[in-house]
Computed example of a mutant assay.
Amino acid sequence: MIQKFSRAKPLPVEDRQDMIIDAVIPLLMERGHAVTTKQIADAAGIAEGTIFRAFGDKETLVRAAIERHFDPAPLRASLARIDPALPLEDKIRIVIELLQARFGGIVRMMSVMGHGERPVRPTPPTHSEYAGIVAQALAPDLDRLNWPAERVAPLIRLIAFSTSIPMFTEATPFTTDELTRFVLYGIAGHPAPELAAATSAATAV
């Protein structure tokens, strides 16, 4: 008896495009415009012709990948997942790490692709939304803040952005812990007693 196997259903066009874009972004970060459709196809595990059926040409794919890379929605979603019950120091550290990853990726993409490769469709303003998300995470600690939470968020963004640009930090790199302490205590403030004790113990080791 001959056993019949059903053929796998082809992916919807949108899903196939997403898969190809996910594969091309790291290649663009590494090779820029020099990346070939064969390299993209190999990375995505597809035939080269599939790229042209999904996007028409390489340039359309590149533009779609850059637009995805600049999309702020994934960052906002990650920030919104920060647990407000975490210690304040941990929340500040997570915000800095997420922002540095975001800005570092943008700076790197622009350096290899050129400043003219921003998405064609303008990204709507999201600064107030970002500030609101961070403010929500910091809400349980408002009594510890010297600034309104909505004003703290832009300050953290400014620090994260400036420390994500290699030319600004190559000579004097800063760790995430150092930036977290700076956000919380500036250059003359005093940490909470338990943090000060932990820092002293770590230094003594």
Results as ranks from 00 to 15, higher is better:
197 A>D: 14
202 A>R: 09
32 G>L: 08
152 V>H: 07
110 M>S: 11
76 R>S: 02
37 T>N: 02
75 L>R: 00
78 S>R: 12
134 V>W: 01
188 A>C: 08
139 A>S: 13
41 A>C: 08
197 A>N: 12
92 I>V: 15
85 A>R: 06
126 T>Q: 14
49 G>A: 06
1 M>G: 09
188 A>Y: 06
14 E>K: 08
15 D>F: 09
109 M>A: 03
96 I>C: 06
185 Y>M: 09
118 R>T: 15
90 D>Q: 11
161 F>Q: 14
51 I>K: 00
85 A>F: 03
45 G>L: 09
102 R>K: 02
191 P>S: 07
144 R>N: 15
130 Y>F: 13
96 I>N: 03
87 P>W: 04
91 K>D: 03
57 D>Y: 03
42 D>W: 01
44 A>I: 06
136 Q>T: 15
44 A>G: 05
88 L>M: 08
80 A>Q: 09
107 V>C: 10
172 T>N: 11
144 R>S: 14
164 S>P: 00
135 A>L: 10
38 K>Q: 11
13 V>F: 01
33 H>F: 09
176 T>E: 13
93 R>P: 00
48 E>P: 03
72 P>Y: 07
38 K>S: 04
42 D>F: 05
190 H>A: 05
52 F>G: 01
18 D>F: 05
9 K>A: 10
193 P>Q: 06
112 V>E: 05
137 A>G: 12
12 P>Q: 04
185 Y>I: 11
40 I>H: 02
171 A>N: 15
146 N>T: 15
139 A>Q: 15
189 G>F: 05
9 K>R: 12
173 P>T: 12
106 I>L: 05
13 V>G: 01
